[in-house]
Design a protein around this nucleic acid. Structure first.
Lengths: 151, 151
DNA sequence: TTACAATTAATGTATATACATATGTTTGCA
DNA sequence: TGCAAACATATGTATATACATTAATTGTAA
């Protein structure tokens, strides 16, 4: 369905306004679809995001701040998300010796295992959900990058 | 900045995965920028969204369900958002006579005034924020619509 | 007409976002 | 050295999202 039908709005003040709504609507749609998958595995979308960031570190230490910077939602609260993940034994905290303000976070074996289980499921869902060719997806990526090209 | 720099991730499992992250990241970025504007006027982004839907009705009655359907975030909670708007006298509720389960929601004069104040500010911000030509914005809209073209 | 499913909205609970503030630690510079 | 500013993280509060459940009303089929 085109955006007009989805949100039942026929006119937009500008092409940019329509693009704004379209991006937000599509993001909500994607998130909604993914949430169900994550939930089935006992974590939330943002918790998954944190786990992926930690895996991407390949064992290199990263602090709460570093995680926050890499997150999709900049205003999320890494500190509390890490708490939740620790309760489930998916991550570990370790005080940093060289800077005692900082806390280093690592993904546990259990965390790695969970991510591995999710990898295929997520890719599969994305493949089904996103009705674009690789070429079109690439175009879309370029347009989004350009959209945000503040200086 | 391109997505890779923004979220400091260099490799993606697929073009579609990258597009997913890019859409979510860009939506978060747009939302974050708009939130500040709304806050300055005492409402939240989703409250603004509800007000816009009501204005779009041009006086035609719409129930809580109808609003929910038109919202960008399908899992939001229109009932409670309307509560908040009512507290600020931006909307009114009226019991529906033909169906006593239903409640009809209308935007008040104060709500209209607030929207009018916000209209220009929002458009202006979008104009500054979104670094695309109208043609590119149109392309983006088409790609997003196609992306979601489930049957 | 009654019984039951469908609907409409409200509410309850857990989690997340948005933003301000607090606490402890480090750094830079007078 | 001493002290203010900057920094890293945690916490507090209000709002929103995600989803299940409740309560009232309506539609419908036996």
């Amino acid at each position: 369905m085109i955006l007009e039908q989805e949100i039942q709005q026929t006119k937009f003040s500008s092409m940019k306004q329509k693009a704004t709504l379209n991006i937000m609507f599509t993001a909500g749609w994607l998130k909604c679809n993914q949430t169900r998958l994550f939930k089935a595995h006992g974590i939330s979308g943002e918790q998954y995001n944190v786990l992926r960031i930690l895996r991407g570190q390949k064992g290199n230490p990263i602090g709460v701040n570093g995680i926050q910077e890499r997150m999709l939602e900049k205003n999320s609260n890494a500190s509390r998300l890490i708490d939740k993940l620790k309760e489930k034994n998916l991550v570990e905290r370790a005080g940093c010796i060289s800077d005692r303000r900082s806390v280093e976070i690592f993904i546990t074996e259990a965390g790695q295992t969970l991510l591995q289980q999710l990898d295929d499921v997520i890719l599969d869902q994305e493949k089904k959900l996103i009705r674009l060719s690789d070429e079109e997806a690439d175009q879309l990526n370029n347009l989004l990058d350009k959209l945000r090209s503040y200086n």
